[in-house]
């Protein structure tokens, strides 16, 4: 009975993912009917519509879906690792480190390849720093990890503010876009897709253990889970997923925090469903948010990180309300 309900939810998420991708491919400054979109996708020609779809909309939609999937998956993992419903992919300071890297690149006038790699390097420094501090005295407690992450985050925040206040107006504009999360410069390669896939596979392999770990350290250990290596795996997996997402799109907020909770409210508490489900919902969510970000005030674009909150808050509240009503 539970299994069939899970399949139903998973099916709905698959349909949502396809629908959101079609919606994204149809939205933009050039109006395209569905028939033209299909012919542009499957019968490539030299026409303008085909070029717009294949060279602009498809890459951007893929970037949005991959980033959303990476963030939501990382959010699920962080929430188990820290056993804290407020945990999100950025809570341990990864986005702060990445931001300092990216902003330094912008400040020195470097872009493109440099910006991406500076962001990734910053994220990596933060990951190792937090791990080193949390691990310093042998015992690895969740509280110590959380505190180390929050403190390092605050440190990065100060550096970011220094960079913002001392930069020229031009730079500040692009810095703010990066900080809010923006997909207009984003490119994903097949590697990003493979990383996401690897994240899903690893997540599914440990999904049963995650269900047990949610119940607490003692219970998980008593049921045969070797928690120390599992936690280290989770920490580095979530960190790598977040670092990758951040280098693609900046610090897109909200997806990693809210998507796992939405699914839990919809009944997907079991990680065997929550892990693939979060990737689908996170991907769809960011694809829809990005479609809106580039169309609502076209030809100007909004940073996608703003739109995720604008549509995420009401969506989350509606789900919360309906599940509370169902329960009472």
């Amino acid at each position: 009975m539970v299994a069939s309900r899970h399949l139903l939810l998973f099916g709905a998420l698959l349909i949502l993912a396809v629908a959101s991708i079609v919606f994204s491919l149809l939205s933009g400054s050039v109006d395209l009917p569905l028939s033209e979109l299909l012919s542009a996708l499957f019968h490539p020609g030299e026409d303008l519509a085909g070029q717009v779809v294949r060279e602009i909309r498809v890459p951007r939609t893929l970037a949005a879906f991959t980033t959303g999937g990476l963030l939501a998956l990382s959010g699920v993992i962080m929430q188990v690792l820290l056993r804290n419903p407020l945990a999100d992919p950025y809570i341990l300071g990864i986005s702060g480190g990445a931001a300092v890297g990216a902003l330094s690149a912008i400040l020195t006038g470097l872009g493109g390849w440099w910006l991406t790699n500076a962001a990734f390097a910053g994220a990596l420094v933060s990951v190792l720093l937090v791990f080193g501090i949390a691990n310093r005295f042998g015992r690895w407690s969740v509280t110590r990890l959380l505190l180390s992450g929050v403190v390092i985050s605050a440190g990065w925040g100060a550096v970011i503010n220094i960079l913002l206040t001392t930069s020229s107006t031009n730079n500040v504009q692009s810095m703010l876009f990066w900080l809010m999360g923006d997909l207009s410069q984003s490119q994903v390669s097949v590697w990003h897709g493979l990383l996401l896939l690897a994240g899903i596979v690893i997540g599914l392999i440990v999904s049963r253990s995650l269900n047990v770990l949610m119940r607490g350290e003692l219970i998980a250990t008593g049921l045969g889970v070797n928690i120390s290596p599992l936690r280290i795996l989770l920490y580095f997996a979530a960190s790598l997923l977040t670092a990758t997402a951040v280098t693609v799109a900046g610090s897109v907020g909200f997806v990693g925090l809210i998507v796992p909770h939405m699914l839990r409210l919809l009944g997907a508490r079991d990680h065997r469903l929550l892990i693939p489900g979060s990737v689908l919902l996170g991907g769809s969510f960011l694809v829809i948010a990005d479609s809106l970000a580039r169309t609502v005030i076209a030809p100007q674009q909004l940073p996608v990180g703003v739109v995720t909150a604008v549509i995420g808050v009401p969506a989350f509240l509606i789900i919360l309300r309906s599940t509370i009503r169902k329960a009472s």
Binding site: N211, V212, M214, R215, L218, I219, G222, G224
Partner: peptide
């Protein structure tokens, strides 16, 4: 354990099934 079960969002059946964790063979079902 003396600590008992933490209150979180899960059903009674989901919880008791976790007791089978050390014996489970199948990855997903």
């Amino acid at each position: 354990f003396q600590e008992g079960l933490a209150s979180l969002s899960a059903t009674v059946m989901e919880t008791v099934l976790l007791g089978r964790h050390p014996h489970t063979q199948s990855l997903l079902t």
